[in-house]
Design a protein around this nucleic acid. Structure first.
Lengths: 249, 249
DNA sequence: GCATTGACAATTGTATACCATCGCGGGCTA
DNA sequence: TAGCCCGCGATGGTATACAATTGTCAATGC
């Protein structure tokens, strides 16, 4: 279950590199949720034939980044608020578990990676105001922290599950608001999690990771509640996405 | 992230039905862990061309039922004892969570399904001795219970994760021993879980599900410990699998 | 005897052409 | 206007050819 996120350009096979490239394009927003992915068009754009492209799309479908329907092709997965809530609920549990495991078994290389990331984070500490660029960078750093922690659990299935979970969550555009909104808090939480992991304090790390997600979950819940008040219905309203684009003239 | 386990024969596309059939063949043991899957051969055997077959294999790879290496094709995933322990640890948490969720939100149809399954289980209650057939049936019933509970959570990502988790675990041949060994206990635990879910008692359901897996985890741990005593080394010893079969003459 | 090298065969990886089938939308009709 | 029909465009699937890579086997050299 590779979920290869790191090997981007220098992949041994086109299938693999296409998978990686598509993945990156989706996560970076170059391909937006709901966007239809036409095989032949995409194949030309990526410079590959349909064969490796279709295999990559099928893998992404199982990972949950794209959805496919028979004879209607694939489109980038649309995550609604209800689903996002479920994902965060699960993430609370899994992130806590992962942080605890990582604290118990982190490697020197893992510690070095975490320290390097925290150094990047420290650059922002002193500043009074942050540019949008800076905020984006901080979000990336946050993702990176969780990736490293997941990796350092050494728990293959957990890593794959968290990878899919993070990927799905990042498809919900609004999710960044949950962290960016109160950035000092988020940063402090990240520092606490990393400190606990490096200190090999499993209980503290797990608690910190859970608290971190719990806060985001609560923020999301406020959004959901506000929406259901506004619209009467309880269903999330992120999934309103254009159907297939108009036919070419 | 479909992980369609039910739609076996009447799938709309060959890709889908091939995926389902392969999945069933692996889980039923018709394709054994470590067995090499040669494309052309398999394609002929299944009566499809290489294209849908490869798409199915790629999906199964992400789901973790097969492993593929570049230019060396796919083989059925081999699960070692260490991995199995990790999977059970995670399952403890997720099964508990799922049982709690299911208890809160189970549908009338779900209750009916559970009651139907329990009726099948009741047939074995009175018996003094069980045939191997009976034991196999009880194992199937156990799987079914957990499937229903997962489904009734209505939590898409959780369902997919548990599906992959159960699938991977069932690749470890020995795992059945954990349940079959003390079958009266297992049966009682299943009854308790189902009863709690039907009674919509989330806390009790979660506790029962966790206890259920905890017992199996402990049994597995005894095996692992015994092995490491026997062989000195701590590594699991299930992965000893023949390499690629000899060339055809 | 054993390690190294090099050619070979089997298998996967990729490209491409072609046909079948399905969905959608436009346009016709009542 | 509502509903049916038809055809275009897209995906799903097959067959085939070829490129790339791996592992084997045997000959070679130390």
């Amino acid at each position: 279950m590779p979920a290869t996120a790191e090997t981007a350009a220098t992949a041994p096979t086109l299938k693999q590199s296409t998978f990686d490239r598509l993945r990156a394009m989706i996560l970076s927003g170059a391909l937006r949720p709901g966007e239809a992915l036409r095989e032949r068009e995409l194949a030309v754009a990526l410079g590959v034939s349909r064969t490796p492209l279709r295999e990559a799309l099928n893998k992404l479908e199982i990972e949950g980044l794209v959805e496919g329907a028979p004879h209607r092709g694939f489109r980038v997965t649309v995550v609604d608020l209800k689903t996002a809530g479920e994902l965060l609920d699960l993430r609370k549990m899994l992130d806590g578990y992962a942080a605890g495991l990582a604290a118990e078994s982190i490697s020197p290389a893992g510690i070095a990676d975490l320290e390097a990331v925290m150094a990047r984070l420290a650059r922002f500490e002193a500043r009074e105001t942050l540019s949008l660029e800076d905020l984006a960078e901080e979000v990336r750093i946050g993702m990176r922290i969780h990736e490293i922690i997941a990796r350092e659990t050494g728990h293959g299935f957990l890593i794959d599950t968290l990878t899919a979970l993070y990927g799905r969550l990042s498809l919900l555009i609004w999710v960044d608001v949950l962290w960016v909104d109160r950035w000092e808090l988020t940063r402090a939480e990240h520092k606490e999690i990393v400190a606990a992991v490096i200190a090999r304090d499993a209980a503290r790390a797990a608690a910190a990771a859970e608290a971190h997600v719990t806060r985001a979950r609560a923020a999301l819940q406020r959004v959901v509640d506000a929406q259901s008040l506004l619209h009467g219905s309880a269903r999330g309203r992120t999934g309103d996405v254009p159907a297939r684009p108009a036919r070419r003239p």
